[in-house]
Design a protein around this nucleic acid. Structure first.
Length: 847
RNA sequence: GGGCGCUUAGCUCAGCGGGAGAGCACUCGGCUUACACCCGAGCGGUCACUGGUUCGAUCCCAGUAGCGCCCACCA
């Protein structure tokens, strides 16, 4: 055994040094020749490459890496690729602001386009570019971002195989996403439908149920007068600007106030349109005046009424969030048409003002608008309330309209192993609440195009019923550039020819296929069979409804099985005040600064202290402790190795001293507990157990035996201590390796060839063979503790010599050797056991 | 409105049927030849509240309150 020790061990620069060597040695490269049962495959969450790195990234990816390193040391071949989620709106938005451009699909491609020198974030000053130019800029910027991300992960010590990196927008990912879609289409799981759709007027795209969030928004109840042959009817609304699109009044069938009116009509204020008064159970007699106006469309309840009462669709809100410019033909009176002309082309906000003013002037507004706060639906990435417009969109069945499918998906959720288990409730909650199929088409630019075209008939009308699909061997395709089989470019957009579907897919339509993308489904069947279904999906809890659910859905539809066996859910990072971090508060620390200050091992320690699924406060103090643990490991290792330096390899059979045996017996227990915890994804418990033992090892055991280990006259005792120290260090370094990959690798290199991360995880059998019991260590720790307490109480230095220590109640079989170790460590002139009737240990100290 | 989780020392959190714990912070004492990026000792808690089960409850059950998150057709 060769031992090479540094004079002054340090954590500085370990990250760069070992990242370099691990890369050169291809330490984490996946060996694809391994059989399926020996492979541990991880469906890594591809982070959104939107330019900002967050400590939350360090937090959750460390959790996964700990599991990956543990499994690797168990002898599993770990399939651990990294992906970049670079497709979709976040990238588009970042490119717009970063370069000061906006996409105008009607423009031709500009060769060698260079973005403006001084980019403007104002939409009006942004330079319009073609879709192809725009997509090129997206690719360019995401490559920059990806380099920054990779540098961070390497610094953190995430042990991914960088040779297998994928991007959700790359050719293979687009091909797989399009193939997946076409197969859904083939099986009837994907379909095109024209329907009321939640619509973001800022981004001008449809939005899916999974991307919605409610926000408390200020609004106001306006009480309006509808005219009726009998008496006027008062209705309350928060959307008076939709009055011109009012198609009915609805009250509860049980509401005696309105029962006589059902079947009659009322006349709308201002616009003088006659609308029917109908009954529907969703109308709530306790809300407002108990009767509501139905507009197309103010909210999702309007959609329900419209569908179930079979009302007409006179929409007035355009896709840009403005009232339509043309006066609708159902408004026939002159005064009605005049009022509409006043709001035509206005935003809904100014239209509301105008309508309220007109109602007031006309005496059709009762009292003042009453301000309220109410929940309004927003696109989670948007800033303005969603409108509802009717549009043609692609959907994938998800159980929202099919009870059998819903039940099947709930069964899949229950089949999956969840860590922590209670997160299953989130999944079930979501699936049970689904109300419609998954809307996957987006009217955006940087994404995977929907790979279909539509034939045009002789009059140039689009035939949406028989989409033209490409041969899957051609994927990926862009229908705006590529041609359907049997057509020529000259036929694009002309009668008898074809048109491309202009939309791209929802980013989740690609992200829901990450197990297939990472495993190279349909591209590399041999690989796919070895890694799919994946062993583990790690992810955060707020995307259970989107990412986790859609991935389960796609695998269920495509493969008839789960995409992974287990899912491990990470919590959120909160700032020390238990709030989410924000840049405006100025409490955000960039991950790189933290990694430099505390070392990657220190930051990883903090991450590992966050239990699976638990929200965790960002805590620099915890990183400091982690750094201390890593430094302690360096120093203790150096010390141990300096003692055994000239002793060569000492066989474990040399461990004959009861105290030494006890240490190894207790360490065996730690190995069992840590292994069990890690196998169950409880990395926090594994670390706690290991860490607690390690501090006892340093503070107590090392102090107790170091003099004996040095003592060349006590040949047997010295050899026993040295063998124990070396074995215990060896095992503890391996137990800590998943948590502190840099410090443990550094230490390991002092007396081993090869990486600690490819050596074997410790097993209790390595330690229990020496015999003995666990008790002597506890006894010795108790006695040395009493000695320390006595010295502290008496105001003595720990170095102060004590005249005599007597221990009563000591088990005679423990022998004198134990007390000799304690006596030396405690600087006691004379220490002896005194026979006692009682089993209870008592220590008597004479100064 | 429905669901899930949390509430233990100043802070961050373990423990989850029979002795209330750790780290940090704080106080005191130590340059003890691995480590002063250190070591030792100490102070500190009606385990949210109310009932119930039990010989016994921080731990089980029911309810209450507060906090957080997820979901919901919120005129």
């Amino acid at each position: 055994m060769e031992i090479a020790l540094p004079d002054k061990p340090s954590l500085d620069d370990l990250e760069a040094k070992w990242d370099r060597r691990w890369s050169a040695a291809r330490l984490y490269e996946f060996d694809r020749s391994a059989p399926r049962e020996r492979i541990f495959s991880i469906d890594t969450p591809p982070p959104t490459v939107s330019g900002s790195l967050h400590v939350g990234h360090v937090f959750s990816y460390t959790h996964t890496d700990i599991i990956a390193r543990f499994q690797r040391m168990l002898g599993r071949e770990v399939f651990y690729p990294m992906g970049w989620d670079d497709n979709g709106l976040p990238t588009e938005r970042r490119v717009q602001n970063y370069y000061g451009v906006r996409c105008d699909p009607s423009l031709p491609y500009t060769d060698g386009f260079t973005p403006p020198a001084k980019p403007s974030a104002k939409p009006s000053e942004q330079v319009p570019v073609s879709r192809k130019n725009f997509v090129e800029l997206c690719h360019g910027l995401t490559r920059l971002d990806e380099r920054a991300f990779e540098a961070l992960w390497r610094r953190v010590g995430v042990s991914v195989d960088w040779s297998m990196t994928y991007a959700t927008i790359d050719d293979d990912s687009r091909a797989i996403a399009q193939r997946g879609f076409l197969r859904n289409l083939d099986r009837g799981e994907a379909y095109l439908a024209e329907a009321p759709t939640l619509w973001d007027t800022t981004f001008r795209t449809a939005v899916a149920q999974a991307e919605l969030e409610d926000r408390e928004t200020p609004g106001a109840f306006h009480e309006l007068v509808f005219h009726h042959a009998g008496a006027d009817i008062r209705i309350q609304t928060t959307r008076p600007e939709l009055l011109p699109a009012c198609v009915a009044l609805v009250a509860s069938p049980d509401d005696e106030r309105y029962q006589p009116l059902f079947g009659t009509t009322a006349r709308t204020p201002l616009f003088e349109v006659d609308v029917p008064i109908l009954s529907h159970p969703l109308a709530d007699p306790d809300k407002g005046s108990g009767i509501a106006m139905v507009c197309t469309f103010g909210d999702l309840t309007d959609v329900t009424w419209w569908r179930e009462l079979q009302l007409p669709t006179p929409a007035i809100v355009s896709r840009d969030g403005r009232i339509s410019r043309d006066t609708p033909d159902w408004i026939t009176s002159d005064t009605g048409r005049k009022y509409f002309a006043d709001i035509a082309g206005k935003t809904v906000f100014s239209a509301k003002q105008a309508i309220v003013d007109a109602l007031r002037a006309n005496g059709e507004l009762i009292g003042a608008p009453r301000p309220i706060k109410h929940a309004v639906k927003y696109y989670e990435k948007g800033d303005r309330p969603l409108e509802i417009v009717t549009s043609r969109q692609w959907y994938i069945t998800n159980g929202g309209r099919d009870e059998d499918l819903k039940r099947a998906l709930l069964a899949r959720g229950a089949e999956l192993r969840w860590h922590p288990a209670h997160m299953l409730a989130r999944f079930e909650n979501w699936v049970e609440g689904l109300t419609g199929d998954w809307l996957i088409s987006r009217q955006r630019f940087f994404g995977v195009p929907i790979p279909v075209w539509y034939p045009l008939d002789a009059q140039g009308e689009v035939d949406y019923t028989t989409p033209l699909v490409p041969n899957t061997a051609r994927l990926p395709i862009d229908p705006a550039v590529d041609l359907p089989d049997g057509y020529s470019e000259a036929q694009r957009g002309v009668p008898g020819g074809f048109v491309a579907d202009p939309d791209v897919m929802d980013t989740w339509a690609t992200s829901s296929l990450t197990p297939q993308i990472a495993g190279r489904w349909t591209i590399d069947d041999d690989l796919f069979e070895r890694v799919f279904p994946m062993n583990l999906r790690p992810q955060a809890h707020e995307i259970i409804r989107t990412w986790l659910f859609s991935t389960v859905l796609r695998a269920h539809l495509e493969h008839g099985e789960l995409p992974w066996q287990r899912v491990a859910i990470s919590g959120w990072i909160l700032d020390p005040d238990r709030k989410k971090m924000s840049k405006s508060v100025g409490n955000v620390v960039t991950p790189m600064d933290l990694l430099e200050k505390y070392g990657s091992d220190g930051a990883r320690y903090w991450a590992a202290k966050g239990r699976p699924g638990a929200d965790t406060a960002f805590d620099e103090g915890m990183m400091k402790i982690g750094r201390r643990l890593a430094i302690k490991l360096l120093n203790a290792s150096k010390f141990v190795l300096s003692i055994v330096r000239d002793g060569d390899a000492v066989p474990a059979t040399a461990v004959v001293n009861p105290l030494d045996q006890a240490l190894l017996q207790q360490l065996a227990g730690v190995v069992d507990e840590a292994s069990g915890a890690l196998a169950d994804y409880d990395y926090t418990r594994a670390l706690e157990t290991t860490e607690e033992f390690f501090w006892r090892f340093c503070d107590n055991y090392l102090e107790l035996v170091k003099d004996r280990a040095y003592d060349r006259d006590d040949v047997r005792g010295s050899a026993s201590a040295r063998a124990t120290l070396l074995l215990a260090l060896d095992v503890q370094a391996r137990l800590l390796a998943p948590f502190l990959p840099f410090a443990t690798e550094e230490v390991w290199s002092w007396w081993h060839d090869g990486s600690i991360h490819r050596t074997s995880w410790p097993v209790a059998d390595e330690l229990t063979g020496v015999g003995g019991t666990a008790q002597p260590l506890d006894v010795a720790e108790f006695v040395i503790g009493e000695i320390r307490k006595a010295k502290a109480k008496a105001g003595l230095s720990m170095r102060a010599e004590l005249a005599r220590v007597a221990v009563r109640g000591l088990d005679p079989s423990l022998g004198d050797g134990l007390l000799a170790d304690v006596g030396r460590a405690g600087k006691v002139t004379a220490i002896e056991a005194i026979p006692s009737d009682k089993a209870e240990l008592r220590v008597e100290i004479t100064q």
